[in-house]
Amino acid sequence: MRPFSYERAADMAGAIEAASVASDAHIRAPVQFLAGGTTLLDLMKIDVMRPERLVDINPLAPALSGISVREDGLRLGALTKMSAAADHPDVIRNYPVLAQSLKLAASAQLRNMASLSGNVLQRTRCLYFRDVAWEACNKRNPGSGCAALEGNTRKHAILGVSPHCIAAYPGDFAQALLVLDATVAIAGRDGERTIPFHQLHRLPGDTPQAETNLAPGEIITHFDIPSRPWTRRSLYLKVRDRESYEFAVASAAVALDMQGGHVRDARIALGGVATIPWRASGAEEALKGGTLDESSAKAAAQAAFEPARAQGDNHFKIELGQATLVRALLDAASLEIRS
């Protein structure tokens, strides 16, 4: 850990101003916002992140946190704690995929500390990224190469990979936001803007360090989740080696709009297997208008993993990812939805 200065944000404009500094990426800027700190401080202690200045945005919590349930959707303040959203009865009932993705994440202690915005911005668990003894890491050290490519890749991605980085996006909640067509509200120097959630993260390409489309200084203020025919028939399935407190080996967020046995609309996102929160549009298309059964679920899963590129140890994720999706789809189809 390196020395840094710490200040509490007095207001939004001041926080934005303080952090609007030149940098090649929001997450790499020398001025970082401090929310729950569970990603940031962890990475600072192991010397992976070295910000010079932390602007604690928790004083802005009155404006930036809270859960409001409206007719047309749900608004989640950026600094809402993971646990608060996970335990909220309306979220549990009407947006089950959101509540489940949060409840199955991390540990109770972390969920009590961590914010929703910090959660979507959490960084990869790639162990080559997390240990500075590895010189080659394009994400930590742009242009240095990628130590993981020829290394132990069990936890690495098979979707959205590039020759420069195969790090998996580790979070769960983002997949839920993705399938529910959430939008992200962002405040910056030039005012406020709203983007669809799928535009938040960037594929690694040849700049894996960039991670998101946020500009330095920009603050996520809230997430809007529209209420749609599929929000209640939704679930999050997380497959891992132990029952709790582990990142996904493979996961699937699924939301379905069904009429009888027919799929009017299907929304699918995959976790643990991709470099960013991954929308499986091909699989969604394959399901739309048809019936949902074992064989159509399998066909959809195959379509979802069509673009997969495995590397070493993570070959099994092609099969596991498909099995996870099939199970999630069939489970979602058989959910009993009471009005």
């Binding site: 668990r125 080696d241 132990r242």
Partner: peptide
């Protein structure tokens, strides 16, 4: 201790 797995209570 996040990546070196041992059983947790739920297991």
């Amino acid at each position: 201790l996040a990546e070196y797995l041992i059983p947790v209570n739920a297991d």
